[in-house]
Simulated assay, not measured.
Amino acid sequence: MLLAPLVAVPLAAGLSAALIVALQPLLRRYALARSNARSSHTVPTPQGGGIAIVLAVFATVGVVLALRGAGLDALEALVLAHAVLLLAILGAVDDIRPLPASLRLGVQGLVVAGLVLAVGGRLMPGLPLPVERGVAILSGLWFVNLVNFMDGLDWMSVAEFVPLTGALVFLGLSGGLPFLPMLVAAALLGAVLGFAPFNRPVARLFLGDVGSLPLGLLGAWLLYRLAAEGGLAAAILLPLYYLADATLTLGRRLLRREPVWQAHRSHWYQRATDNGFPVVAVVGRVFVLNLALAALASATLLWPSWPVTVLASGAGGALVASLLHAFGRRRRPG
């Protein structure tokens, strides 16, 4: 069991990087991202790097399960693979020819609902099962979309998913997560690391919706599985910056009666660049914050008690609020 993530991370990283190199000429020809009201770039840049991440995760998980013996994990892995593939196809089509928001949301809702119902498990036994399932589906759908919303800056998804998946691998090795989620987290960690050199500022390649939607689904499933193992506080702490930035931005736009389905530059990380923060400074701060959140989330599982959970949750909330406040203020020269 200890060997699986040690093999999965470098294998997925190598596969992801190799696939990107092979696919780049095709992406330059057919999948150029041009700037719009939401963009932080001005030069047309190839998108679709997420294809390599998805394929690398599929191949790595498949190889490890085949060598180890899938056992009871086979059915859940198969359902997850089909769900991820459907969102990757949806994202690929949307990258080439933008689809109506209603169609995208409808397909995403069906995929998330199917995955939640297939995985099962109980997070809040005190709630009626239909209510819990409904909350899980809405939460998963929101997470898929917020990952897409937050993927608007070079290295932003790297700064989010490397600490998140690294923490999940650590928790899996510590016994806080079953084998399959730990393996998927390790494969996703490696695949994102393989993508990182091509996306570093100034990026030569973007994830595209073909990458951000499957990443959102994989992240939502991993956090759901963590919560089902008794780690609900950890599952909220790990993506807390993404949750706060995207949710507060959506709430603010709704209060202003702005069309929330249209491209915009209202997220705190986007306001930070408008306020004078270099891209590297923004993603660097997000990365360090996510490392701190990963440590706090791990503490709630390694030392399970209500004082630790309350202190870790409070500290995480304070750190996120502090960074959002900093991003919202104009940076002083020097």
Score class of each variant (00 low, 15 high):
L2S: 04
A4D: 13
A8R: 06
V9K: 03
P10W: 12
L11P: 00
A17Q: 10
L19C: 05
I20M: 07
V21H: 08
L23R: 02
P44Q: 05
P44N: 06
Q47P: 01
G49W: 11
G50Q: 08
G50R: 10
V57R: 06
A59T: 11
T60V: 06
L65Y: 06
G69R: 08
A70S: 14
G71C: 10
A74M: 12
V79C: 10
H82I: 10
A83T: 02
L86F: 09
I89V: 14
I89L: 15
R97Q: 10
R97F: 07
A101I: 12
R104V: 11
G106C: 09
G109L: 15
L110Q: 01
V112D: 14
A113N: 13
G114K: 11
V116S: 11
V116K: 14
V119T: 15
G120N: 13
R122E: 15
L123F: 12
L127W: 14
L129K: 07
P130L: 10
G134F: 11
G134L: 14
I137S: 12
L141A: 13
W142M: 06
W142A: 10
V144Y: 03
L153N: 01
W155N: 10
S157I: 08
V158Q: 03
A159F: 15
E160G: 06
P163D: 14
P163Q: 14
L164E: 02
G166Q: 05
A167R: 01
V169P: 00
L171H: 02
L173P: 02
L173I: 04
S174Q: 10
G175Y: 10
G176E: 12
L177N: 08
F179A: 09
P181G: 00
P181V: 00
M182E: 03
A187T: 09
P197L: 07
N199E: 14
P201N: 11
L205G: 01
S212E: 03
S212C: 03
L217K: 09
R225Y: 09
E229K: 01
A233C: 09
L237C: 02
L237M: 03
L238T: 01
L248T: 11
L248V: 13
R252I: 04
L255W: 15
V260F: 14
H264C: 11
H264S: 07
H264I: 13
H267T: 04
Y269P: 01
T273W: 12
D274E: 13
D274S: 12
N275C: 04
P278W: 15
V283E: 09
V283T: 15
F287G: 03
L289G: 01
A294S: 04
A295K: 01
A297T: 10
S298K: 00
A299G: 07
T300N: 05
L302Q: 06
W303L: 15
V308T: 07
L311I: 06
A312D: 07
G314I: 13
G314C: 08
A315K: 00
L324Q: 04
G328E: 05
R331H: 05
